[in-house]
């Protein structure tokens, strides 16, 4: 759980900057005042939470049926950790200007009240490398409870970044947060690469 929390926390800032900056101006345009934004944020986070719980269940059952032998589990997850961590580092450092949130499509939705729900779903399902790492972790846990805990850690870590959103107008140093977040994501990727290597050689 600790690892998942750290991963969520480190990649959450990039998530906030790429996704949050698309979503929240949009939300704010619709609503007036911090109260309404807070309500939207709560719905958004609750949706993310539910989607993660669902994912935890699915990947754990998938993991149980596909990866039975512990040796196989160690090797596969070690290998997947390395691959997804490299993707995570690449995702953090590449400077493609179109690095925008997949949730931007939500902006086209007509029914306004459902916007935070859709945002939550799309944001959780955006297959960013950090989520892939958590999927790997969830699939290889011994019990369903542990798989839930991994997702809970990731949810908590990444959601922390969204909490100050009602005060988003006050955030001045957006580029500083983004830069620190990108580096933190790269570091989290490095931690998981080392973890993957240790899993393979131990």
């Amino acid at each position: 759980m600790a690892e998942s929390f750290i991963l969520g926390l480190s990649s959450g800032s990039v998530c906030l900057v790429t996704c949050g900056m698309v979503m929240f101006p949009y939300m704010m345009a619709r609503t007036a005042g911090a109260k309404a934004i807070t309500a939207d944020l709560a719905v958004f986070l609750a949706t993310r939470f539910l989607v993660y719980a669902l994912l935890a269940t699915i990947v754990w059952f998938a993991g149980q049926s596909l990866l039975r032998s512990p040796v196989f589990t160690n090797y596969t997850s070690g290998f997947l950790y390395i691959v997804f961590s490299i993707m995570l580092i690449w995702y953090a450092i590449e400077k493609r200007p179109s690095k925008t949130c997949p949730a931007a499509v939500v902006a086209k939705i007509e029914k306004r009240k459902l916007v935070p729900v859709f945002l939550g779903v799309v944001n959780s399902l955006a297959l960013c490398p950090s989520l892939l790492l958590i999927l790997t972790k969830g699939a290889t846990q011994a019990t369903l409870g542990k798989s839930y805990l991994s997702f809970l850690g990731f949810f908590a870590g990444s959601s922390l970044w969204f909490l100050p959103v009602p005060a988003i107008g006050l955030v001045k140093k957006k580029n500083v947060i983004e830069t620190v977040g990108i580096f933190a994501t790269g570091l989290a990727g490095t931690i998981f690469i080392i973890k993957g290597i240790l899993m393979l050689i131990r």
Partner: peptide, 21 residues
């Protein structure tokens, strides 16, 4: 010079990982 922000990311990571482990 954006690299000068790296110590802050590392600070965040080491503080968290040290707290967790």
């Amino acid at each position: 010079d954006s690299w000068k922000w790296m110590p802050f990311a590392l600070l965040l990571m080491v503080m968290l990982t040290a707290a967790m482990t």
